[in-house]
Amino acid sequence: MAFKPWNSNKRKMQLVSLIDMVFILLVFFLVTIFIVREPREEMRLAVPTPENKPGRAQILIQLLPSDEFFMIDESAMPVVESVFRDVENRFGYLSVQNLQQKKKEVVFRVLTERFTYPAEQLSHKIQQLLNKANRSPNEKYFVLIRCPDEVPYARVIEVIEKLSQAQYNNVIYGCVGGSLEEIRNCKQIRIVTEIDEKGIKRDNLWITF
């Protein structure tokens, strides 16, 4: 009877590979444990209580029921000034009250056309603001977020979460309820020139509700 020769190489346990596999399994279970735990955590976010009086903001973010948002900052000022001049030239014959009404209508239309963005641009716009804030740590930027009643509040939280990533904590934010319609139906939109604490003259856009 012929026996096959004993081949010790075939039967030998490959210890290195075995250890390799054990380590991989260990890593796998470690990673999955953290993944299973993570979703139980909740976002936590503190928001200042809104004040019961007129407020001011450098940046206004108005969320819209559609996924869009309307955002104006100081870059809107030249547009408003130009529209006001244009309306005064074209409708100078109107009474003061009617002229104000015309200015409000045209400014609202122009601003909403130029400064309404799709939701995908929100991160980009906020990042631009954060970059600006990070370049000027001594400047404070107050952002007012307005949200219509029917919009899920998670959208506001999303905006605030992004704003809270400012490097020097110089982006301050607040949120109030309100729709774009309320801005359209506001009493007045006008430019008010003020002198800030540094003695610099600034033109501000005032919306009276």
Partner: peptide
């Protein structure tokens, strides 16, 4: 499931 706002954060 959670979107971008997933991290834990707080007021500055």
């Amino acid at each position: 499931e959670t979107g971008p706002a997933r991290s834990i954060f707080d007021l500055p």
